[in-house]
Amino acid sequence: MHIYHRFWPRLRGAAWPLLLALGLVLGLAHPSLAHKVNVYAYAEGDQVKGEGYFPGGDKAQDSLVELLDGQGKLLGSTHTDSKGEFSLAVPAGAMPPLKVVLKASMGHQGDYTLGWGDRQAMDTAPQQPVQPVPDPSPAAEAPAASQGELEQRLGHLLDAKLEPLTAQIAKMNADRGVSVHDVVAGLGYILGLMGLAAYLKARR
């Protein structure tokens, strides 16, 4: 009882800092920040698709998205939908690398540059029907699809099958979350700067 009376007032005073410290620990386990907006994009056919989101997972809704070419020329713009997603048509002959800039409210802005791989995906995507090649094998009586048609269908199928994967990879490229290393590094820098300042002051 004595101990309770002696320490409780202090403990009560310390409650907020303790809560803060607890929050810090819990917060570090799930770093989710509303300080910046992330955007990623990938090419599909002659479209650039992508998504804008805040690191907590909240979607960047109704945000302006601009598509720029290698020289920074504006190729097109749109707004994200309620799921934070957008798609933009790429004009033929656009100069790579293409860059997507997303402008969320309150001064948040993010960008993502599409790499060469994306550009190639765009080039090889079937855009015009390929000339049917005469089928040399007389074996099959079954619906004989020409090779070109087959390739085209396969291309579409692959595009559809691979879309989640492409999106995921693009997202991983864009996403550089806060790691414990960063936090420790920052704290170390602050300590080091303090030491430096103390050293310089002591020398004078």
């Binding site: 803060l20 810090l24 917060g27 799930h30 920040l33 806060v178 602050i190």
Partner: peptide, 11 residues
Amino acid sequence: AAFFVASLVNV
């Protein structure tokens, strides 16, 4: 340092 980490704690 407190300011540096406080921005990581989202409530």
